[in-house]
Design a protein around this nucleic acid. Structure first.
Length: 122
RNA sequence: UAAGUAGAACAAAUGAUCGCGGCUGCUAAGCCGAAAGGCUGCAGGUGAGGAAAGUCCGGGCUUCACAGGGCAGGAUGCCGGAUAACGUCCGGUGGAGGCGACUCCGAGGAAAGUGCAACAGAAAUGUACCGCCGGCGGAAACGCCGGUAAGGGUGGAAGGGCAGUGUAAGAGACUACCGCCUUCCUGGUAACAGGGAGGGCAUAUGUAAACCCCAUCCGAAGCAAGACCGAGCAGAAGCAGUGACGUGGCCCGCCAGCUUCAGGUAGGUCGCUUGAGGCGGCUGGUGACAGCCGCCGUAGAUAGAUGGCCAUUCACGACAGAACCCGGCUUAUAGUCCGGCUUGCCGU
């Protein structure tokens, strides 16, 4: 991804959980925290409760792909952690994508223009 | 053609497009760097399984330990072979099931010892409840004493089986056949099979997935193994006597500075994929497999790459994701497909 890295350390995850703000919908939970850097860092977490290894891998790929395709619309300087909920097990790419954008809108970390266009299209 | 039986192969496909990880290349591609190299870009090609799973066995590899032997502990358990090795595989033997193809077996020892065996039953290792027979007593009913494991009853199991002789009634007491045990002969590498002779069964039930006995095997931990490089912080030694402090100077102390050293944290590199490799052929072997020849090059991530979207097609897609590597076992699984074999039916 051009403008982003992945969030790796357990300590980084903990900092985002403790200090970041969170919103949730049916499929996902999103934590966001400023990291004072030039780029975003994305962490994806899928619990074993959601499914076996294949299911969990597939979900992380869907979430990463959703973020990748809308990366240029996100504000930068953020640590973002996305957690897949159990209902996400059978979700399609489009459901995950709209779910991610919805949460980003609630956090006000996505560019307004695009969001408005998105809203108008509904 | 139907039913069955054992085995082999596959695991939605194609195209376009946006991405990700290795690899290779780029008529001197760009940037950084003294270089080694790093980052970026472009192009090409490549990128999960039959079980990648469970982590139940076996081996390679690595580090540590190690004179030899024993004990303890664990594993295996008909015989022979294959193999790096195995608890795997192949071929046999014996037993069980099936008309058959074929399938199944935790298949050493209970005549070394110990333990356990509910309930029932007279009695569970050494026994007489009923019954049968004999003797004595009695008018009789019956009682007492003795013999008896053929019959009844209980039980998973009652002391070789079955038929006869025999007897008061019975009994391997005796006899035939079968079983068992000992021993000999023949065949077989062996398990074992066939046959002869003898014993006369006090060897007397089951359980060894109870202890145990016998034979064979096993050093321990694992790639987060391990090897190398190595910031920073703290440490040691040295240098310069430069800067700050100890009221100015010198010395000295201390902090900062520079150099070197060991240590090894964060981090990085290697280990990391050419290997008991795959495919085909020939030869040997009943077979597992082995030998020879030819061809192929086939993931290597490191918080972890193989995905998204669109179109078309179909039977509408199961179980499921490499993490050092192999050989097995076990468990999960939508379906597709191939040729063997068996039994039945129909036709020639």
């Amino acid at each position: 991804m051009k403008f982003s890295e992945s969030l790796k350390k357990n300590a980084d995850f903990r900092r985002v959980y403790n200090k970041g703000s969170s919103y949730a919908n049916k499929f996902l939970v999103m934590y966001v925290l400023n990291n004072n850097k030039e780029e975003n860092r994305l962490g994806i977490s899928v619990s074993k409760k959601v499914g076996n290894s294949v299911v969990r891998h597939h979900l992380t790929r869907l979430i990463r792909e959703s973020y990748r395709l809308h990366e240029d619309r996100f504000h930068y300087g953020l640590d973002i952690v996305v957690i897949a909920r159990i209902h996400a097990k059978n979700a399609s790419y489009h459901e995950i994508e709209s779910s991610l954008l919805h949460l980003a809108g609630l956090h006000h970390i996505i560019s307004e223009n695009h969001l408005e266009k998105k809203m108008e299209s509904f």
